[in-house]
């Protein structure tokens, strides 16, 4: 319970710290010249609102007990296998994007490989999953090529 208490308060604290940081990041903007507000005032109002609301929320939760927060966490059902799967998929996606951005490998090839690989992985690496994954990869890549390359004549990454 104590741990949940602390964890529950962590994100709001992070938010408040971030807001303070942004407040100072806005510091050097020039004073307004043609209109009374200037470029820094509205962002500062918004930052103030975020800090205020976060504090209010912490207060309310302090008053009302942490049952709500604990309930949210419990509902998620953190089973390690699925979390690992998600992380691997996500890293796969990021890897695909990194390759797209920083290498010259053809977009269509990368997209096909990405879709096929992840479909197959998410399908628990079964044989049927492999065939379906390849078909879907081919199909989707072809569709993208058709819509964007042929019909709309645009460019790929």
């Amino acid at each position: 319970m104590r741990k949940d208490c602390v964890l529950g308060f962590l994100p709001p604290l992070i938010i408040i710290v971030a807001c303070v940081f942004f407040w100072f990041a806005l510091g050097e903007l020039p004073l307004p010249r043609f209109e009374p507000m200037g470029p820094a005032l509205f962002p500062k109002i918004v930052l103030g609102a975020i800090i205020g609301l976060t504090l209010l929320d912490m207060l309310c939760r302090g008053l009302g007990g942490n049952t709500a927060a604990a309930g949210e966490k419990a509902r998620e059902g953190n089973d390690p296998a699925s979390t690992r799967r998600t992380l691997i998929c996500l890293s796969g996606f990021l890897f695909y994007l990194l390759l797209l951005d920083f290498t010259d490998i053809s977009y269509l090839l990368l997209t096909f490989l990405f879709i096929a690989a992840e479909c197959w992985y998410l399908g628990h690496c079964g044989r049927r999953a492999l065939v379906l994954a390849l078909i879907v990869g081919l199909g989707i890549t072809a569709l993208i090529y058709f819509i964007f390359g042929v019909v709309l004549q645009s460019f790929f990454p």
Binding site: L100, D101, I115, E118, C119, L132, I144, S154, P157
Partner: peptide, 29 residues
Amino acid sequence: YLLIPPILAFCTIGAFMSNNTMVDVWVLV
């Protein structure tokens, strides 16, 4: 499992298409 990667692919190309830059894709992620 057959839907998720294609959607990711569409998100990628869609984000890229707005301004023809990968920056938008990174913003999306």
